[in-house]
Structures are given as structure tokens and as C-alpha cells.
């Protein structure tokens, strides 16, 4: 019961966040919303029992991927999708 409820909630939040990261105009905010996508993806892996994948997702998603995306946006000329 508990795990299936988690599954449903996390998957529905995941769809909302995936659409949201395309929908926002600002590229920085889009990069940060990818961070939530990564958090929810880590929860989904952990809840399916794939703990090694979840740990990789946790460290890479929280530590490196946001930083690299924002560093890339910083060097772009076009900051927002107008």
C-alpha cells in the first residue's frame, strides 16, 4: 500500500515538473527546476529498490549537474527564452 501510493504521487509530480522545466521562460530557473526533476527521479529509483542508481542520481543531481548547467547559462549571450 505504502509503496504504491508513493509510486503514484512521485510519478504524477514528475510529469508536472518535467512539463514545468520546459514551460518556464528563464534559463536559470529552468536549470534549477531540472534539480527537482533529479530529486524526484532519485526518490523513484530508491523506491523501486535500485539503490546504487539512486545514490548516483543523488550525488550527481544535487552536487554537479545544477552547477554545470548554470555555469553554461552564465556564458551564454541569451539568458531568457523570449
Amino acid at each position: 500500500m505504502g509503496l504504491e501510493l508513493f509510486n503514484t504521487l512521485i510519478l504524477s509530480l514528475l510529469v508536472v515538473v518535467a512539463v514545468l522545466s520546459l514551460w518556464v521562460r528563464d534559463l536559470v530557473v529552468s536549470a534549477v527546476v531540472f534539480g527537482i526533476y533529479s530529486f524526484l527521479m532519485c526518490l523513484l529509483w530508491a523506491e523501486m529498490g535500485a539503490v546504487d542508481v539512486a545514490f548516483t542520481e543523488a550525488t550527481v543531481g544535487a552536487g554537479v549537474s545544477t552547477v554545470v548547467l548554470i555555469a553554461t547559462v552564465f556564458n551564454l549571450k541569451r539568458k531568457a527564452k523570449d
Binding site: 550525488t59 545544477t66 552547477v67
Partner: peptide
């Protein structure tokens, strides 16, 4: 005991995201 390690990783590394945004 296994999942606590993930939570430590999140508690430590969440800081990086906020710092990079504020620095930007």
C-alpha cells in the same frame, strides 16, 4: 541504515545549488 547515507548526501550537497544560484 542504507538509506540514511543518501539523506546525508542530500543534506550536504543541497547547499551547492543555492550557493551557485546566489553567486550567479
Amino acid at each position: 541504515d542504507m538509506f540514511v547515507d543518501f539523506a546525508i548526501a542530500y543534506a550536504l550537497l543541497n547547499f551547492v545549488g543555492a550557493i551557485v544560484v546566489s553567486r550567479y
